[in-house]
Amino acid sequence: MEVYSPEGLRADGRRWNEVRNFKCHINTHQNSSDGSSYVEMGNTKVVCLVSGPMESPSSGRKPNSSSNLTVSISMPSFVSNSRKKFKKNDKRIQELCIFLVKTFEQIVIMKNYPRTIISISIVVLSQDGGLLPSCVNAITLALIDAGISMYDYVSSINVGLYDTTPLLDLNHLEENDLSFLTLGVVGKSEKISLLLLEDKLSLDNLEKLLAIGIVGCHRIRDIMDQEIRRHGNLRLSKITNK
């Protein structure tokens, strides 16, 4: 199965600049957490739960302690094609958690929540490429649902390079074959909050990929914004009609 056919079609029938089916819901777990969201990017499905702001469990902690935000990712063994048990202290997962903490520590208005912690937990249900982007998008939505003040959206997507053609929003098979960038962009600007590249890429192609990635992120942001407003309007209508 070829990654990109000469007619310009990818293995799943998309063109080079088409994003996968992006579905998102917020307020999915009203009772178990302060904010929650569910994000589907193609076949990658991720649930995010936010609890906070709340009192930190170790009350003896210094008031200016570094981490007011904690992220934990749980990857059960059925997420990918072949069953694989993930170790509790898997370095890759810990690295992802650290990346997410650092990204959102800048975006959440932390000065509004001194001496409290915000605990974010992500459960991955299905992994088909784009794990980090889905997590970022899910966290953005869940934080908005929880009512935690943020400066702006952070939307994320990955973009890879096949030969000289950039491909937007890669699935698992494409991720294994190509070198790809994961981008996290703030709101409608061109400012990049998160940038991750794990395989070799020629320097001359970087600009192209960044440009296309930013456009892709803006598209994701628009879809997320639409869903937030729809949900907001729904709740508003319930209140006003009563």
Binding site: T103, L194, L197, E207
Partner: peptide, 14 residues
């Protein structure tokens, strides 16, 4: 480019 790692932090223009 062998790898790029920008773990959040300040947002920087492309």
């Amino acid at each position: 480019l062998v790898q790029i790692s920008k773990a959040g932090g300040l947002s920087i223009d492309a």
